[in-house]
């Protein structure tokens, strides 16, 4: 406590000296936990003098609820594609001034006009990834191909999954061959017994850092974000990443400026900075998701590009989420219900 009280003014003083022009300017960034390296933000502050206040969340729902509650004024946010879709429809986002974002040209063309924002007027892709299965091959010798192989009694209390009701229900829908973006009371009734069985087998629900339980040896398999899987693979090659046979959820997390943002100019500056290949490369080094930045990918090491969790070989069929409106509440209720029933 004392240390920070002493250090903060010292740091502030330092920045004021190096950047007298923009001193005092601030930017409120609201992003995912474990996604933006602090070093990258420090680099931005050093170059521009703009102080970044960084707050984090662990789910799109948390972001959305804080944004509509009007608590805090955020200048830059980082929703996933399907959440950005609702935000655009609800007029919660401010259109971007593309002239201020020359680095947009660095993005790979396949990430330029995505379904949630066909004109690319509101969002800029930050990182992309999949949700898949991680297996500790030292402990698990049976072949794992899909969700059905994970959620078996053999792995009771050896499984970690994302604490995300939508994901859990979507995996069950994949195994039942139901459309994941068309959630009806009937389809929920179909997956209910499946999810009920699964919930009994799961040991840990964790969206922030599901790798921890795997690294600690508390579980042997997991259904997690690809970036977490990539970190595990870098840590130890015994952690293998498998794209589930029944269906693979893909997400693209984007940068966007809320309609209520106070400092839109600085927000544009930060987006443009994050799109710079040398900066984007640092992000990939810390959080090895799939980098949509083609120029930055050229700077990655062959080893980084060979990480099967970050850049899955071949051309797997991926499915993105779309907004499902009020059905999201039904999903949450179903999962709460089944968790409590144990």
């Amino acid at each position: 406590m004392k240390l920070t009280r002493f250090l903060l003014p010292a740091l502030l003083a330092l920045f004021t000296v190096t950047n007298p022009a923009r001193a005092g300017e601030e930017l409120n960034l609201f992003g995912w936990s474990e996604y933006i390296p602090q070093g990258v933000l420090d680099g931005f502050t050093k170059e521009t003098g703009i102080k970044v206040n960084f707050e984090t969340y662990a789910s799109n729902e948390e972001l959305l609820s804080k944004l509509v509650a009007g608590g805090g004024s955020y200048d830059l946010i980082q929703p996933s594609d399907y959440t950005a879709e609702v935000m655009i429809r609800q007029k919660l986002l401010s259109p971007l001034d593309l002239a201020q974002l020359p680095n947009l040209k660095n993005l790979a063309p396949e990430f330029r006009h995505l379904d949630h924002d066909p004109d690319g007027r509101y969002t800029v892709p930050y990182m992309s990834g999949t949700v898949g299965i991680v297996v500790n091959t030292e402990r698990v010798k049976t072949p794992i191909k899909g969700y059905r192989d994970v959620f078996t009694p053999a792995f009771k209390d050896r499984i970690v999954v994302l604490a995300d009701p939508r994901e859990l229900v979507t995996w069950a829908m994949f195994t039942e061959k139901l459309p994941i973006n068309h959630v009806t009371p009937e389809s929920l009734a179909r997956v209910r017994p499946v999810v009920a069985e699964w919930v009994k087998l799961i040991k840990v629900f964790d969206s922030d850092s599901p790798k921890t339980a795997l690294l600690n040896g508390d579980v042997d398999v997991g259904v997690v974000w690809s970036g977490e899987a990539a970190i595990l693979w870098n840590e130890n090659r015994k952690f293998q990443y498998i794209l589930p046979a029944e269906g693979v959820p893909q997400f693209v997390d984007v940068l966007a400026i809320p309609a209520t943002a106070q400092n839109k100019a600085a927000a544009h500056q930060l987006i443009n900075y994050l799109l710079r290949p040398d900066v984007s490369r640092q992000i990939s080094a810390a959080f090895p998701y799939t980098n949509p930045n083609a120029e930055a990918r050229k700077l990655l090491t062959p080893e980084q590009l060979a990480n099967p969790a970050s850049y899955p070989p071949g051309h797997p069929k991926l499915t993105t989420f779309h907004d499902i409106g009020k059905a999201a509440a039904d999903i949450d209720r179903l999962v709460t219900d089944l968790k409590s029933a144990r």
Binding site: E61, E62, S65, P165, K203, D332, K339, S340
Partner: peptide, 17 residues
């Protein structure tokens, strides 16, 4: 794994909205 009342309430505000 097993929700307690605190988790359920927190969940309503942050996840289920």
């Amino acid at each position: 794994r097993v929700p307690l009342i605190g988790n359920v309430i927190q969940n309503q505000f942050l996840v289920a909205r």
